[in-house]
């Protein structure tokens, strides 16, 4: 898919003190592409995700979003972040706000929408993730799967150009994983550009255009899902797949 690049990382390096967590990362994500990132624990997948909206700063290299280099901390960065939706492993809903308020808050504060307008849009999105009836509850009153779907709606409310998912189903009980994956599948079908850190192979096979395999802070493989799962090239990937595909 040699389409317009939406996210570009060039020679990105990131250290935590001595630890070299991202090593010469080169990665391009095109408009409408779904890229799944997998790899062993500690390989830098979350860090990679978080550098894309500059929740983590990098020491060298270049990150461009829709052609624009990421700005320094400030108004300009905030504006750019609003175009990048992010969904976290631990949901991170605002505990003091209702479901509806969670989804509306960014629209009002960042996009400057009127409250009524924002609430209407929020209800549409909640409908889409199957939670219209939960609008007036607080996050603590919802199951994990429901909370994660609210978090997805909250991110979508900003009309982002791209969505980042960092292990969105890892904190969920098995019976709730599918309800979240279904919402993500639908998003992928609707043409959303997505970067998804996940170990859900079913999702990778059915929704991803590419699988990026990371180990020790490097991108080791970057291929079509079927190729990767059936014919991994590197020893690291073979080893990793044999471990996770056993069960």
């Amino acid at each position: 898919m040699a389409v317009d690049p939406l996210i570009e990382l060039r020679d990105v390096n990131k250290y935590y003190g001595e630890l070299h967590v991202l090593q010469d990362i080169d990665l391009t994500v095109g408009k409408g592409e779904v890229v799944v990132v997998i790899g062993p624990s500690g390989s830098g997948k979350s860090t990679l995700c978080r550098t894309i909206n500059r929740l983590e700063t990098i020491q060298s290299g270049l990150i461009r979003l829709d052609g624009q280099p990421l700005p320094e901390e400030g108004k300009e960065l905030a504006r750019l972040r609003s175009e990048v939706g992010m969904v976290f492993q631990s949901f991170n809903l605002f505990a003091h706000k209702t479901v509806l308020q969670n989804v509306s808050m960014g629209q009002v504060k960042v996009r400057g929408r009127k409250k009524d307008e924002a609430d209407q849009r929020s209800r549409e999105l909640l409908e889409r993730v199957g939670l219209a009836s939960q609008a007036d509850k607080y996050p603590a009153q919802l199951s994990g799967g429901q909370q994660q779907r609210v978090a997805i709606a909250r991110a979508l409310a900003m009309d982002p150009k791209v969505m980042l998912f960092d292990e969105p189903t890892s904190a969920l009980d098995p019976e709730m994983i599918n309800e979240v994956l279904e919402v993500m599948q639908q998003l992928a079908r609707d043409g959303m550009t997505m970067v998804v850190v996940t170990h859900e192979m079913g999702f990778a096979r059915s929704a991803a255009n590419r699988v990026v395999f990371m180990a020790d802070g490097r991108v080791v493989e970057d291929r079509a899902p079927e190729d990767f799962f059936t014919h991994p090239e590197s020893e690291r990937a073979k080893d990793f797949l044999s471990k996770i595909l056993k069960h």
Partner: peptide
């Protein structure tokens, strides 16, 4: 929890909006 602050920032809220709203 710091995650809520990160979520607010990732929505594009500024530092002062995150502090005062979340």
């Amino acid at each position: 929890p710091t995650g809520q602050g990160e979520a607010a920032r990732s929505l594009g809220m500024t530092f002062s909006q995150t502090l005062s709203g979340v």
